[in-house]
Design a protein around this nucleic acid. Structure first.
Lengths: 325, 325
DNA sequence: TTGTATGCGTTATCAA
DNA sequence: TTGATAACGCATACAA
């Protein structure tokens, strides 16, 4: 599998490397018709394919961008990634997607790896635990955009949704329907999205004059969630409605209810903060808070693209409202 | 954002570039403690980060592999991709995922682009329409593995499932339950998977002595599918069971039935050839033919990895049985 | 134990 | 209109 290089083409065509390079970069202006022809033939004959690596080294651009998602099993992440890829495709930039698994160490490793590979920019769903690293990138003027979660004390481009407000409205809606025992189920409150959603919940409950029952706030890792739900449902005051803070919580909840022989909608009203695929196939009336994933991805991509092309403006935070359906 | 290079580190530490290179590649054996120290300090002080690009150019390895999926909205593809990424992660190889959108032109473009970027190998869900290109890669000894679909007349590593057999069994099951009007809904029969599934269907029907009703075979693109279903259900002989050849067909079918006020399981029995996420949340009894996506992905990754490391054996086709649940 | 020289496959500068 | 030549940042054989 010896590769054919520009030098081989040059030799075959009887011209110099630089001429071939000119040709490849379509700088035909000063090029003789016959040389053009000869080079074309040589390329054809040898099956030459340019080496982007060498070009990148020279040009200091790889046409690669990196996406570091916090959790790839989260459907929202894949939707956003897809939108980002679509956007960059039109400019012939490819994306490398890495999964940090909500682990700050992994995140750090990926950031360093991608930068070592000279990707032109980075879109990150931050764990929020590597602020020094984030800061150093921003200071160096390296193109970077944060998605989904806020980074504290750092002036960066961010694309997020109105977690608190959407949750607030959804809970308010439940309260209007007469619910007073509303549980809030969430994974550990380590990232801004979860905290903001809880904030919205608390606000709605308080405003309605309902006393906040701490037992109704279930904070647990997915594997422990069923256990906690178990004890919630075996206590005296049972919830009549549940807020699932994201899709993975929803799945755990769904499995739990199935085991218990309970049904969404009938025994328990549910709102899920997340889009899930195939939701239209579910027959039970579940409320979803949908984040505009595609729009958010596109926006993030656009912001990154501008930075890559040095169209600099001041970092801004873009908040996209979610829809309750 | 001027990058710090090895030369800078060497100058700062008062040694030569090669010594720094040695250090970075952990060839400490003959290195003096004090030099080591000095280099360490210099790297720290300058915030040096190695440039993989230059290294790759030299070593002719990028530690990047490419995955070209036929359709990224197909859940199976994402599962396989994830398994591939997981596998390569342990060897510090990253994957670039590209979406060919079932378009042979796009596929060709991506193959060329990824090879120009010098990725170490390729895993492809082939459209099946670029056989010349596939062949040239194989002939050149370029590491490549095909997944999901067979490539005709080409001796290559492939990882597929037993489409025909699984379908045959599923249809047989329906027949045993008394169904005789079983429809088969599929996207255009352009790829091996769909044709094989149809083959399994026909075989089961024929063996049972049921006359093959061509009206029960619906072949259409997703956008036209509802229309075709419409005419199927307005004809005299209506199906009592339906085979959906993949998840996208299933969605179209689901939407159609919802519009018509019909329900899975009750009005119509359904089997879907594909895993879908959240399937455990569906309450109706739908039969799924599940492909072992993770295992298939891992196998494909393993086969590619071996090729990359020149552990050559003869190309083989690995068939993974699907499970009917 | 460390340094020098050379090359990887391009592009860019300048001269011819 | 084309060609020499020097980078790009690193790795490696060989010399010291």
């Amino acid at each position: 599998m010896e590769r054919v290089t520009m030098a081989d083409v040059a030799r075959e065509a009887g011209v110099s490397k630089s001429t071939v390079s000119q040709y490849l970069n379509k700088r035909y202006e000063y090029m003789g018709e016959k040389t053009k022809q000869k080079i074309e033939e040589a390329i054809e004959a040898l099956g030459y394919q340019p080496n982007f690596l060498a070009r990148s080294l020279k040009q200091k651009r790889t046409s690669l961008i990196g996406i570091i998602v916090a959790n790839i099993t989260h459907y929202f992440s894949t939707e956003v990634s897809r939108a980002i890829e679509d956007f960059f495709h039109q400019y012939d930039l490819q994306a490398i997607v890495c999964n940090a698994d909500d682990d700050p160490e992994k995140e750090k490793k990926y950031i360093e790896m991608l930068r070592a590979k000279q990707v032109d920019g980075l879109i990150i769903f931050p764990t929020g635990k590597n602020n020094d690293l984030y800061e150093s990138m921003v200071k160096q003027g390296y193109p970077v955009v944060f998605v989904d979660r806020k980074v504290e004390n750092l002036d960066v481009y961010s694309v997020i949704t109105d977690n608190s407000e959407s949750t607030y409205q959804a809970i308010q809606h439940f309260i209007k329907k007469g619910h007073r025992n509303i549980a809030f189920v969430v994974q550990p409150l380590t990232v801004s999205t979860r905290m903001e959603r809880l904030h919205g919940y608390k606000k709605a409950v308080k405003e309605a004059g309902i006393e906040l029952n701490p037992n109704f706030i279930i904070e647990a890792n997915i594997p422990e969630m069923k256990e906690k739900l178990e004890s919630l449902f075996s206590s005296e005051e049972k919830p009549t409605a549940i807020f699932a803070a994201n899709d993975r919580v929803f799945i755990a909840l769904g499995e739990f209810l199935k085991e218990k022989g309970m049904k969404f909608g009938e025994d328990l009203e549910i709102v899920v903060f997340d889009n899930i695929p195939f939701s239209q196939l579910l027959e039970t009336p579940i409320t979803f808070i949908i984040q505009p994933a595609s729009e958010m991805g596109r926006k993030a991509a656009e912001l990154l693209y501008k930075q890559i092309n040095k169209e600099n403006s001041d970092p801004e935070v873009f908040v996209f409202p979610s829809k309750i359906i």
